[in-house]
Design a protein around this nucleic acid. Structure first.
Lengths: 214, 214
DNA sequence: TATAAAAGTGAGTAATCACTCACCTGCGAA
DNA sequence: TTCGCAGGTGAGTGATTACTCACTTTTATA
């Protein structure tokens, strides 16, 4: 099974219900959407790359936008999955006495996920500004659920005196900027450069810890 | 003169050489490109919004992509202008003994610029991944000139013992993440939210100072 | 093995695309 | 007044677009 296949398997919980050709369509679409953007990619091009007839695409996806949503929606779900699990807080606070340990485990976990799903992450951030449907999903899930969870976490560690007293939204913004900044620089802006990943992540966490400590 | 006009005047050094209709084309294109993206915007739509015939667009710009480049290239130039002025270092080190003062002045200056040119900044970051021509310009200017300048600045303040010893690229990445993180959150992700800008900028600088101090 | 449903096909369609071109208009220089 | 020319026009161009549909092939089940 190829890397591409594994990515798709991981992405769609019912991947075994997908036809061979359907998987090829999804793989081709991910490829092209990430490289040229959704609007600049034609369905004929996807069909050609996938080695199927154009009609086959529309057998499985009513419209081109449907195909995009079918790709992006589960990516978004996977990305925020760790925030949605029940009793995150309980697990969290048992396992991670210190904020530093929590954020380290968390960053490493999410970076690993994004690293394995870069084209999808690319499509996600590139198309959200343009697709109201995706923007709506993003707002509903991220803005509401994830943000609420993050606030709880920040406030928990603030109560323990491990994070500086500051509006939790500001803390979240800073942490998110730093983390996404690293991911974008590492995997999108300069993927070809030489990176000492462990050291860079360590330093990034240190920036946050120094900056957010009381 | 409208706000839109002022923006265009500021952007094109030879704005007085632009026809009335040409200005309207540029304004309409900025509007649509920022909202729907370059690929999803048709020339007929731009013409309609600008109140001109479609042929008029192609009288001034050979292709649709030419129009995009004519809009984005000067934006990029304006954005990096402060780095390109001669003897930046001399000016810099006379005026800003402390790194904190420098970065504060710098952030405020660039935020003010971006604030007045948000649609253009949006187009810039949205289209650079897709347009090889823009990516080339970006690499040439940012990667080479700007990065070199930033390295000098970081190393200067490192020599003075005001910045932690760390590869200058890492320092730059962290500072850029933090600053762009604020701008993107403030003006693109949640422009409608209530923001206490002065306080947020102050806190953002404090994060950097705490995180980057030896 | 027979049968129906699902998967797959590719020629065809109307709409839209970026771009062209022959023509028109207003204006400054000769 | 005449001329040249840049600015402006909009109907027209061939190419491409997302999508349809009548049809064939494959698959699952009884």
């Amino acid at each position: 099974m190829s890397q591409q296949d594994k990515m798709i398997e991981e992405l769609f919980h019912n991947a075994d219900e997908l036809t061979e050709k359907q998987k090829k369509i999804v793989a081709a679409a991910i490829d092209s959407f990430a490289e040229k953007g959704f609007a600049a990619t034609s369905t004929s091009e996807i069909a050609k790359k996938a080695g199927v007839a154009e009609g086959t695409i529309f057998r499985h996806y009513k419209t081109k936008k449907d195909l995009l949503v079918a790709i992006v929606a589960p990516t978004m779900a996977k990305l925020i999955a760790p925030f949605v699990i029940k009793d995150l807080n309980k697990v969290l606070h048992q396992d991670f006495e210190r904020f530093e340990d929590f954020i380290k485990a968390f960053i490493e976990n999410r970076i690993k996920f994004l690293k394995n799903n870069m084209p999808l992450f690319r499509i996600l951030i590139q198309e959200i500004p343009f697709q109201p449907e995706l923007r709506e999903q993003f707002k509903e899930h991220i803005a509401q659920k994830v943000f609420e969870r993050l606030r709880q976490i920040v406030e928990h560690y603030q109560a323990k005196g491990q994070i500086i007293e500051m509006p939790s939204d500001t803390v979240i913004r800073m942490a998110a900027s730093t983390i996404f900044g690293y991911i974008i620089a590492r995997y999108l802006l300069a993927p070809e450069a030489e990176w000492d990943d462990d050291t860079e992540i360590e330093r990034t966490i240190q920036l946050l810890m120094n900056g957010l400590s009381p």
